[in-house]
Design a protein around this nucleic acid. Structure first.
Length: 417
DNA sequence: TCTGGGGTCCTAGGACCC
DNA sequence: TCTGGGGTCCTAGGACCC
């Protein structure tokens, strides 16, 4: 049974366009958190040579010259639009895997004898119901469906089916565009004269295994049409949860760092609770600005908890303590983060007889109540003071669009006549 | 001056054990 | 002069994805 990959075109830009149709046909980009670099581009922006991941300041000239529209990222809007797209897709197949915020794999039903026609129907329905344009690739394995979807972006109909002989299409596919081949492997392959997906599948298996590990071999098999990667319908439980942010300005004072770390710890704990887990290990890192052209200088420390917990105050206390240990007076800090790992199901926490965490029912109820309030009225409705009130360190988001779909205050108004 | 955030998996090598 | 072999677990680093 073939796989379909449905991929939203320039997803974040498309979300902005739904609520601002004037952007249609205009070069538009969306920036990462802290307005640091480009994370989404409209086709017009791509045509101007603006690269994915490029720092904003470095393409500022092109942006100003061509009047490119610029937006800060608005993840509550994108997340909500994503749910709408996924809900629509769910009507077309009972077997679906939500792969990322803007992609889903679907299994085609046995009865579908014209995959391209099916794909076109999916595409037009999603467009009509959500306003989001998608491309669809269909093939015998997930990797081939990905290849087809990549090709579909350049076709006007937006749907590509590999058919029975996927090999013919592989000669036109750059090896770097294959799912599973990142920049490192692409570079290595190119240096050996391997440029296309077709050349890749002609390499000996043992060479691939030795130089690209078993994961690389799986990619090659999948390109040959042998299914190695199954559909994962139930979202697995996460094994770690992280929250990290760059600061909107340089941070020098320990109390500000601790405030930020407390806020991040609180968010990470929410994520852990949301999947019914508790954390048995906390990691905290502080990053100082790079020296000249280097990378961030990162100090990191980790601590095992005597008993796994998801109780925010306890996690905040540990994280602040750890930040204090990492802090060097005189340091100029740009970024910090908290990682919770060793996640276990909350009902299966190994009790510690010597150092009990004191995780009582009252505390669990308190956390549940906070989570409910924040789910209902919006994140941050109720929070711990340790995370700061003014938050002078918080990230820049100078050009964010309103939260059109997730905040009553921002709901769009249409005027008639 | 200005470079995101959040995940996963695999492997090699060291420590340790018998 | 002689100096095994095999297993497990952990960690750091490297690769990948969006």
């Amino acid at each position: 049974m073939p796989f379909a990959l449905v991929d939203c075109n320039n997803f974040y830009v498309s979300c902005e366009r739904v609520f601002n149709p004037g952007l249609e046909g205009k070069p538009t980009v969306v920036l990462s958190n802290n307005d640091g670099c480009i994370i989404a581009r409209s086709n017009e922006a791509k045509a101007l040579g603006i690269k994915m991941g490029e720092p904003f300041f470095r393409c500022r000239q092109i942006i100003e010259k061509h009047h490119v529209k610029v937006y800060s990222s608005n993840f509550s809007l994108y997340g909500d639009m994503s749910s709408r797209v996924m809900e629509t897709l769910g009507l077309f197949s009972p077997d679906m895997e939500i792969y990322s915020i803007d992609e889903a794999f679907l299994l085609l039903d046995e009865g579908i004898d014209n995959p391209v026609a099916w794909g076109k129907l999916v595409k037009s329905t999603v467009r009509k119901w959500t306003g989001i344009p998608v491309s669809i690739g269909i093939g015998p394995t997930k990797t081939l469906a990905k290849v087809a979807a990549h090709l579909a972006k350049t076709r006007p109909e937006g749907v590509v089916y590999t058919g029975d002989s996927p090999y013919t299409m592989l000669k036109d596919v750059d090896v770097a565009d294959v799912w599973g081949i990142g920049s490192r492997y692409a570079h290595k392959l190119r240096s050996m004269g391997i440029h296309t997906a077709l050349e890749l599948i002609n390499l000996p298996d043992d060479w691939v295994k030795r130089h690209m590990t078993s994961a690389g071999l799986r990619t090659v098999m999948e390109l040959k049409g042998i299914e190695c990667i199954q559909l994962e319908q139930v979202a697995g439980t996460r094994k770690s949860a992280m929250c990290s942010r760059s600061f909107g300005r340089e941070v020098r004072a320990l109390h500000e760092l601790q405030e930020a770390v407390a806020a991040y710890a609180s968010r990470a704990a929410e994520k852990v609770r949301a999947q019914g887990s508790a954390a048995s290990c906390i990691q905290v890192f502080l990053a100082r600005s790079p020296l000249k052209h280097g990378r961030y200088r990162v100090a990191i420390t980790s601590m095992d908890l005597p008993e796994a917990t998801s109780y925010t105050p306890e996690i905040i206390r540990a994280a602040k303590h750890m930040a204090g240990r990492l802090y060097r007076p005189g340091g100029v800090y740009k970024k910090a983060g908290v990682i919770l790992s060793g996640l276990v199901a909350r009902g299966e926490v190994q009790k510690n007889l010597v150092y009990p965490s004191g995780e009582t029912q009252d505390r669990q109820r308190l956390m549940e109540t906070m989570d409910e309030l924040n789910a209902r009225w919006g994140r941050g409705t109720i929070a711990f003071a340790a995370g700061g009130i003014e938050r002078p360190w918080k990230m820049r988001q100078a050009m964010r669009s309103p939260r059109f779909t997730t905040s009553w205050d921002n709901i769009p108004v249409a005027r008639v006549g």
